[in-house]
Design a binder for these strands. Structure first.
Lengths: 104, 104
DNA sequence: TCGACAGATAAGCGTATACTTATCTGATTC
DNA sequence: GAATCAGATAAGTATACGCTTATCTGTCGA
């Protein structure tokens, strides 16, 4: 069940920070690391968790590994949200923004 | 930081099951419990976590406590999603559904 | 081919978390 | 007011998780 991997991956603040940084542009693990006080193995482990959650995907480039946001994970969260759309009308401030941004 | 409470709350499969059941209609803790093999204190603890994450809200009714989905939590997740809207176009299947359901 | 570097994996450790049983609080009913 | 019931809290335990140091794999330039 991928939902479990997804929410567990996002439950850690360090992992959310990594994801957020990656959202500003694809980069390799070392580039991700500088600016953050985190060891190399820790970063590698976090990226592995994000990868199995489909929040991030990798692309080998020589001896570097380029990481980027995997839209799949975000789509899965959106899909999870749709299950509870019955409760949206009661509080749509954020959802209106979401709606506006989706317009062609 | 509420995001942390939110994702941590959803990271547990039991809690997601409770939330899902509650989404099908408001009910008290005992009603939530039957059908699930979960102790009374465990349910109480899970509900407390969901409540601090704003995923659920309570309403005392005599000696019963009625629980219901709090749209606030869902809106917060939606708001979090909007931060990464740059990555949506690549995989919008689920998001199109989300969009359609939001139309007036 | 060798040394250097990017990154993954292994093993171990301390803390967080989900559970249990036992007990407490508060509201209802007799 | 006493018994009963819904639910919260306390305390303890076992496992999961995030981190560390040490080591391994694989790619590159000299």
């Amino acid at each position: 069940m991928i939902e479990n991997e997804l929410f567990k991956a996002l439950a850690d603040p360090t992992r959310r920070a990594i994801f957020e940084k990656l959202a500003s542009g694809a980069m390799n693990a070392s580039a991700l690391r500088d600016g953050m006080t985190i060891s190399q193995p820790a970063m590698s482990q976090h990226l592995a968790v994000l990868r199995t959650a489909r929040l991030v995907r990798e692309e080998r480039q020589g001896r570097f590994v380029n990481y980027e946001v995997d839209p799949e994970g975000l789509a899965l969260i959106a899909a999870w949200l749709t299950k509870y759309r019955a409760y949206w009308p009661a509080r749509i401030d954020a959802l209106k923004i979401l709606l506006k941004d989706m317009e062609p």
